[in-house]
């Protein structure tokens, strides 16, 4: 789980670099990616399906 979170943060930051996001937003993007991945992977434990879990995870924002 911890490995998954770290790798997910790295993946979102890599994609932010591909799309040329400004430097000062990179850490925020990594945080959003980690938070939404944890929601997406933890919600199915409570019996929610993967599609509603993805819908809930899409609402996460950091600001």
């Amino acid at each position: 789980m911890v490995w998954e979170l770290i790798i997910c943060g790295i993946a979102t930051i890599a994609f932010a670099i591909i799309f040329n996001i400004p430097y000062r937003l990179l850490w925020m993007i990594g945080l959003i990616g980690m938070l939404s991945w944890s929601v997406y992977s933890l919600l199915p434990i409570t019996g929610v399906g993967p599609v509603p879990a993805a819908a809930v995870a899409a609402f996460i924002r950091v600001n």
């Binding site: 993946a11 890599a14 994609f15 670099i17």
Partner: peptide
């Protein structure tokens, strides 16, 4: 970054 993103 695309290599890292693909792997991750």
């Amino acid at each position: 970054a695309s290599a890292i993103g693909g792997g991750a």
